[in-house]
């Protein structure tokens, strides 16, 4: 079983997230591996462990600081770390990112076939959940998204997904792109030995040229959208906080009625 997991470097949820020049501010201190990608790493490790053989690759696309995302994946136990780092990638939209990730996947797949690419259900900065679909289309592989259960047997992957109106079971032949939700598993914590080993483990760094991707096909130039304005919202004004001494419920009702909400 050979699996590649995509991991994104995103600002820590607890940090002061912001925009600079129309792009998400990404710093080394406040950045981390997208929390939802931990479920993708866990899914890959479990499949390989169950198969008793195989390898897991972690891949990130982003500036120099993004290496933190694959280092985190190494701490969790993946075998190989890949980092596409190229100034020309900056400002990519989902379609540009998908092109770059697909080129990296094809490079690994060309060395020896991969069975799966596993992604998180969303990157917690943009929360678009579009990349897995774009990647499957770009690779022309099977697409199985939002898996809350996943099994692989006889050259097929099968997932369950919980949508607002229905629970579905979907199957497709390998190789497949699978995105997984935080319902799928409980991600492990890194152990001391792996943390030490991850510090020294090699990270393969690729440029767009290494991947044969034309710089004009990725990055801000190829993006189909441009952020023209980003501004911090003012905090909510006129907030009221009461401590219940017996009539707070009544006060709340009066507030709702006065606001025309009840």
């Amino acid at each position: 079983m050979r699996i590649l997991v995509t991991v994104k470097h995103t600002p820590d949820l607890q940090s002061q997230r912001s925009f600079t020049d129309g792009r998400v501010t990404r710093t080394a201190e406040d950045g981390t591996m997208n929390e939802l990608d931990e479920y993708a790493v866990e899914a890959a490790l479990q499949l390989v462990e169950a198969a008793g053989e195989g390898e897991v690759y972690a891949l990130t696309v982003g500036g120099p600081d993004a290496v933190a995302a694959v280092r985190k994946a190494l701490q969790l136990g993946v075998h190989h770390a890949l980092h596409v780092s190229d100034e020309a990638v900056g400002g990519s939209d989902v379609f540009g990112t998908a092109k770059v990730i697909a080129a990296a996947v094809n490079k690994i797949h060309g060395e020896a076939p991969l069975d799966l690419v596993i992604t998180g259900m969303a990157a917690l900065d943009g929360l678009t959940s579009m990349l897995p679909t774009a990647l499957a289309a770009e690779l022309d592989w099977s697409q199985l998204t939002l898996a809350s259960a996943l099994s692989v047997a006889d050259g097929e992957a099968t997932i369950e997904r919980h949508l607002a109106d229905a629970h579905e079971t979907v199957s497709a032949p390998l190789p497949a792109v699978v995105s997984v939700t935080d319902e799928l598993n409980k991600p492990r914590f890194p152990n001391f030995k792996l943390i030490m080993a991850a510090r020294k483990a090699p990270v393969t760094v690729w440029t767009l040229e290494d991947l044969g991707v034309n710089a004009a096909d990725a990055g801000a130039g190829a993006s189909r959208t441009t952020v023209v304005d980003a501004s911090e919202r003012p905090p909510r004004a006129d907030r009221v906080k009461v401590t219940d001494t017996g009539d707070a419920g009544t006060q709340l009702a009066d507030f709702l009625i006065e606001k025309g909400l009840a």
Binding site: F19, T225, V227, V228, A230, S231
Partner: peptide, 8 residues
């Protein structure tokens, strides 16, 4: 944050 994005 509020963000305004132009579709080119």
């Amino acid at each position: 944050w509020n963000v305004r994005t132009r579709i080119d």
